[in-house]
């Protein structure tokens, strides 16, 4: 397709908490938990950060790398399962904060962890059809894990934004394929502060079935095999699932490594595949081929077959921080600070 990624930008909050620290509080062997999940730390948003601020920072980082007029952006869609408002969009704030308002369409997406890639599909469609010149798709999350829930070891924060257009495409979309079923593996009811999940049910019938089917379906449609790709980015609820899925699909650890951030920052939910793909684009050379497959509980997977173009040589990557710059900018906090930052304890007056 003609429409492709013309820029991207990421944002990861700098605070981190280690599984050991979480386990210390709940009387669990946090180190062993972390090892089992393949997670060494997870990112924590500062008290003044949320999905909106992360989305804005990511979108601004994307815009720094290209010289376009933000007024030419015709659509902004932000995917998240942690929008600060239940009613009132994240995307309108982003639009205003990047000076794209008011001649554009905006909406928020929600599909558990794949809301960001759903946003990307829709923006690609609008640009490809010629309805809009540029579009911005963002995946941003500050995911919730109830105190004492295993999710607490991984639920983290971060996001990435993709600017889609037809000129100056740095990453071409060769094809998209989605696989969607009604599989209630993980959910959060209206008005509930924390999600619930089906425990081990989130594995085989949910994550693996959808990710593997979508990846295989994409490769079948493109007539490719695992070895045809330089990088693979898979949804990464922990460090373990994507490694196992990559292996089953025939990818090597090297193909997976660059886009696998969860071991360092935890599961950024809607931000996960967008951030993984951003990390790959930070490293990729013209001609590199990438397979990216998201997963959203409930459940579905979006697969993208991507080729990095020669435009990448001219791309002003250095104008915004690289994903690894932000992954490496870590400030570790203790559990008490973490629960305060995440507003898990109520102060007088709250």
């Amino acid at each position: 397709m003609e429409a492709g990624i013309i820029s991207y930008g990421a944002y990861i909050p700098r605070y981190r908490i280690k599984p050991e620290e979480i386990g210390r509080v709940w009387g669990e062997d946090g180190a062993a938990r972390g090892k089992g999940l393949g997670v060494m730390a997870k990112s924590v948003p500062a008290p003044d950060e949320d999905v909106i601020t992360i989305a804005v920072e990511a979108a601004r980082n994307a815009l720094k790398r290209v010289d376009i007029d933000p007024k030419d952006i015709g659509a902004i869609y932000t995917g998240s399962e942690s929008h600060p408002y239940a009613v009132k969009p994240t995307s309108t704030v982003v639009a205003e904060a990047i000076m794209a308002s008011p001649d554009l369409t905006a909406a928020d997406y929600e599909f558990a962890c794949k809301a960001g890639t759903a946003a990307l599909q829709n923006v690609l469609g609008l640009v490809e059809s010629g309805i809009i010149k540029y579009g911005m798709a963002i995946g941003s999350d500050t995911s919730q894990g109830a105190p004492g829930d295993p999710l607490e070891y991984t639920a983290s924060a971060g996001g990435a934004a993709f600017l889609v257009g037809k000129d100056g495409v740095i990453a071409e979309i060769n094809g998209m394929y989605s696989y969607t079923t009604d599989t209630p593996d993980f959910w959060r009811r209206e008005g509930q502060p924390y999600p619930s999940h089906g425990g081990r049910f989130t594995g085989e019938p949910a994550y693996f079935r959808h990710v593997l089917t979508a990846a295989k379906g994409m490769m079948e449609r493109m007539g490719t095999e695992a070895k045809d790709y330089d990088y693979v980015v898979l949804h990464q609820p922990n460090g373990k699932f994507p490694r196992r899925a990559a292996k089953k699909l025939g990818f090597s650890p090297e193909q997976l490594e660059t886009g696998l951030l969860t071991p360092r920052i935890g599961n950024t939910y809607s931000g996960a595949v967008p951030l993984g793909l951003s990390a790959v684009l930070d490293a990729a050379e013209p001609g590199n081929r990438i397979l990216a497959v998201s997963f959203g509980s409930g459940a579905g997977s979006d697969a993208f077959d991507i080729t990095v173009t020669d435009e990448m040589k001219k791309f002003r990557k250095e104008r915004a921080p690289l994903v690894m710059d932000m992954v490496n900018d870590e400030v570790f906090i203790d559990y008490a600070t973490y629960v305060k930052y995440r507003k898990k304890i109520r102060r007088k007056g709250d």
Partner: peptide, 11 residues
């Protein structure tokens, strides 16, 4: 400059 939450008008 960075973009952050300044305050909330209550919960």
């Amino acid at each position: 400059a960075t973009f952050r939450k300044l305050a909330e008008d209550g919960k």
